[in-house]
């Protein structure tokens, strides 16, 4: 059976990353709850201006959309805008104030350390699965079962850059997706007031 698949290299990379990400943390994670996603909090210096602008799962969607823009938009100003959007989205993911992924263990309590460990386990699982899928596709192509024709990306460097940045941001993306809505301080005050 011969199958011919002709797709842009950038799209292939992104599809593999997105599918593996979703299958690992969304479908494979029983506790994931779409309606209970943590709002994104900006770095502390900006907090008083606009503490929350996006829910965690939206942040994941924004990052993948920005990566698609960086990889797939044609040259010129549109491509530059795509790259800038990708840089901004990656900055938001990494700068995400509540992201445990980038914090040293000694800054975290026992619950957060356990969460951080499980985030990295999921991130490594995603990366290993993505590499596995790519390897299988290449082997099928080599065995001439799959006629895989990867169209050259607009810029080879961008495809490599997106893949490398994914390795860096994957733990933060996993955390953004899975983190439930945090407690509100107001809720705490209400509990306290009711008890007094």
């Amino acid at each position: 059976m011969d199958m011919t698949l002709e797709i842009p290299t950038g799209a292939a990379i992104l599809v593999v990353l997105a599918v593996v990400f979703l299958s690992t943390v969304a479908i494979g994670e029983r506790l994931s709850d779409r309606l209970n996603s943590a709002p994104l909090e900006l770095p502390a210096a900006w907090e008083r201006y606009r503490p929350r602008i996006l829910a965690g799962k939206w942040l994941v969607g924004v990052w993948f959309a920005a990566a698609a823009a960086a990889l797939l938009l044609p040259g010129g100003p549109a491509r530059l805008a795509g790259l800038l959007a990708f840089a901004a989205a990656s900055f938001l993911v990494i700068g995400y104030r509540r992201s445990l992924a980038q914090q040293p263990a000694e800054a975290l309590d026992e619950r957060e350390r356990s969460l951080q460990r499980s985030i990295y386990v999921s991130a490594y699982r995603i990366l290993a699965s993505a590499i596995g899928i790519a390897a299988v596709a290449l082997m099928l192509a080599e065995a001439r079962v799959l006629d895989l024709r990867l169209l050259p990306p607009a810029d080879d460097g961008t495809a490599v850059l997106v893949a490398l940045i994914f390795v860096w941001v994957a733990p933060s993306l996993v955390h953004a997706w899975l983190d439930p809505r945090p407690d509100e301080r107001e809720e705490d005050d209400l509990v306290l007031a009711a008890s007094r």
Partner: peptide, 29 residues
């Protein structure tokens, strides 16, 4: 995952909220 107890680990009921209220402590305190 997420640092919460796993799905197959039963929750342990506790009186922390009640005792915290009695002590007049906020969660932050």
């Amino acid at each position: 995952m997420t640092g919460r107890r796993s799905a197959d680990e039963p929750p342990i009921p506790n009186r922390i909220a009640e005792l915290r209220g009695e002590a007049g402590l906020s969660r932050i305190e």
